[in-house]
Simulated assay, not measured.
Amino acid sequence: MAEALSLKSRWAAGEVTFGAWCMMPGALGVEAISSLGFDWILVDMQHGCMDYGQALDMIRAADIRGIPAIVRVPWNEPGIVGRVLDAGALGVVAPMIQTADDARSLVDSCRYPPVGRRSFGPVRVGTRDGAGYALTANDRVVVIPMIETRSALDQVDEIVSLPGVDAVLVGPFDLSVALGLPPGDNDGKPIFDDAIKTIVAACRRHGKAVAVLSNAAVAPLRVTQGFQMVSVTTDIAALTSASMASLRIVKKLE
């Protein structure tokens, strides 16, 4: 399998990749979503409701469909980063990055020596990829620190320029709060628009991709702004909206 490498190649070629954000625990939802043509799925262990065992099953479900599973870990901590990679995640998103040193620590946790300090023990992923996994893991795993704090925004150029950082992910809700705005997509507010421009420009300067949590309404704007890794839905939002639409149709027939 070389899904993460294909993501890197597609980003390098200027392609946009679209994904789905999984907040609900369980493999079945991932299997359903992964059959629809998304380029990646993200298992959200920070704000989602899954534990490690459930995240492992979700990664397996993505593997069955041949789609890369990216995991947002609860915190930038080497133990959990190593565990989700050993489970088979092909990328890691780390929240609440504050400094370039934080991002460097994330890279170290994701890369085997000599370029990092990831501990060797690819138990589950070894059953998937065989003994050669460790030889290719450093090239295949995508490392994605989040830019969602004022400190990270101030150091975005230093963060993006780090070797081993493949992309940065904008968290528009926390970034908005850090900028003194209500949580959400605050497009049209100059301070928010300037932050987006600053992040995208830094990524372009250093040849890195830029990612974002988004939705179907805002995603087209994010593509025109230069984002290459764009989520277009969350599983819970999709379930809620579809269920609401069905209920409204039935109620109109009463």
Score class of each variant (00 low, 15 high):
38 F>N: 00
38 F>I: 06
38 F>D: 00
38 F>V: 00
39 D>I: 06
39 D>Q: 14
39 D>S: 06
40 W>C: 09
40 W>L: 05
40 W>H: 06
40 W>Q: 03
40 W>D: 00
41 I>R: 03
41 I>M: 13
41 I>L: 09
42 L>M: 15
43 V>L: 12
43 V>E: 02
43 V>N: 03
43 V>A: 02
43 V>D: 01
43 V>C: 04
43 V>Q: 06
44 D>L: 09
44 D>M: 09
44 D>I: 08
44 D>H: 10
45 M>I: 10
45 M>N: 03
45 M>L: 09
45 M>Q: 04
46 Q>T: 08
46 Q>C: 12
47 H>K: 07
47 H>D: 05
47 H>T: 09
48 G>K: 00
48 G>T: 00
48 G>E: 00
49 C>M: 15
49 C>P: 10
49 C>L: 14
50 M>C: 13
50 M>T: 04
50 M>K: 12
50 M>D: 07
52 Y>W: 15
52 Y>D: 14
52 Y>G: 04
53 G>S: 09
54 Q>F: 12
54 Q>E: 14
54 Q>W: 12
54 Q>I: 01
54 Q>L: 07
55 A>T: 07
55 A>C: 14
56 L>F: 12
56 L>H: 10
56 L>E: 09
56 L>M: 14
56 L>P: 09
57 D>M: 10
57 D>A: 15
57 D>P: 00
57 D>Q: 15
57 D>H: 15
58 M>W: 04
58 M>I: 03
58 M>C: 08
59 I>D: 05
59 I>A: 03
59 I>W: 03
59 I>V: 11
59 I>M: 14
60 R>P: 12
60 R>Y: 11
60 R>D: 07
61 A>I: 02
61 A>V: 04
62 A>Y: 00
62 A>L: 05
62 A>H: 08
62 A>Q: 05
62 A>T: 09
63 D>V: 02
63 D>T: 05
63 D>F: 00
64 I>H: 01
64 I>F: 10
64 I>R: 08
65 R>F: 02
66 G>V: 09
66 G>C: 10
66 G>W: 06
66 G>P: 01
67 I>K: 06
67 I>W: 07
67 I>Q: 03
67 I>A: 01
67 I>S: 01
68 P>G: 07
69 A>E: 05
69 A>R: 02
69 A>P: 05
69 A>I: 02
70 I>Q: 02
70 I>N: 02
71 V>N: 08
71 V>G: 01
71 V>R: 00
72 R>W: 06
72 R>F: 06
72 R>T: 05
72 R>H: 10
73 V>M: 10
73 V>K: 11
73 V>A: 05
73 V>S: 03
74 P>G: 00
75 W>A: 15
76 N>Q: 12
76 N>M: 03
76 N>S: 07
76 N>Y: 04
77 E>V: 03
78 P>G: 05
78 P>N: 08
79 G>Y: 15
81 V>W: 02
81 V>F: 04
81 V>K: 02
81 V>C: 05
82 G>C: 13
82 G>L: 11
82 G>M: 13
82 G>A: 13
82 G>N: 13
82 G>Q: 13
82 G>I: 09
83 R>K: 15
83 R>A: 13
83 R>V: 12
83 R>I: 07
84 V>N: 02
84 V>W: 11
84 V>E: 10
